[in-house]
Design a protein around this nucleic acid. Structure first.
Lengths: 128, 128
DNA sequence: ATAAAAAGTAAGGAGTGCCTAACAATGATA
DNA sequence: TATCATTGTTAGGCACTCCTTACTTTTTAT
């Protein structure tokens, strides 16, 4: 199983590649305020798990497996954050912060129920 | 800040003392399937944080600070589990399992909103 | 009372995830 | 082109949380 930290880094790698087509180790270092050696280490671990292809200075590529893993996390994050904001009326910032932590530990089953709950709730509001 | 593991152990210590008036290191070892040396270590760390008083074979006592900390965790656990079961219709076992993990990372603010949401929902159901 | 079982401790090891300091490679610029 | 800044790696260290093995202490049962 992937750790919360590595999952965060993978999520960031995925999002950044989608946005800017490429990512460097230093970007991760800055984004998470961790040292460059710690990033190197994390990237090696992600590569060991076949979630990325890491060729040092030649760049970071995300694998199919990595994309799937990252997408799952992003989805969980999105649903959690939306649920907190729209159903529980939590402010955006707190919702995001908590989604970031909970996304690593919550089961898919609960995420699915949250999604359905939110959808049915919004439908009811349209009708009324 | 206390770690998830230590928080789990403290919660268990508190609950067990409430139930049976006393607890021994071996009980924690069995409950969490960790070795006796790991329990010793954890108890020393909890004692260092003034959450318990640990006098080796003489027993484990929980401090005022420890009780407060444990109660907070228990409360979070309860609200999370209830919310999952009653609002999201999650089965009891899954709800418990997830509450155990989320209770360590979620903010009080969201817990409070979950509690209020559940209460107002139940009130509405009574009226109808 | 003594031997066996149970509970706890000490010592040493491993993986994770972070750090700093120092070095190497790459790239930009004067 | 030579120098300086940026980026990345190596080496060594630390804290946490778990482990095993071996030892000690306490309790229990014969």
């Amino acid at each position: 199983m992937i750790s919360a930290s590595l999952e965060d880094y993978l999520e960031f790698i995925h999002n950044t590649i989608l946005e800017k087509k490429e990512i460097k180790a230093i970007d991760i270092s800055k984004a998470f305020s961790i040292s460059r050696p710690s990033v190197s280490e994390a990237l090696i671990r992600l590569a060991d798990m076949d979630l990325i292809i890491y060729e040092g200075r030649k760049g970071i590529k995300i694998t199919k497996k990595g994309i799937e893993q990252a997408k799952k996390t992003v989805k969980k994050h999105q649903i959690l954050s939306d649920f907190f904001v729209e159903i529980l009326m939590i402010d955006k910032q707190t919702a995001e912060k908590n989604a970031c932590k909970i996304e690593h530990v919550i089961d898919d089953e609960i995420i699915e129920k949250m999604k359905k709950y939110k959808e049915s709730k919004l439908k009811n509001n349209e009708q009324s």
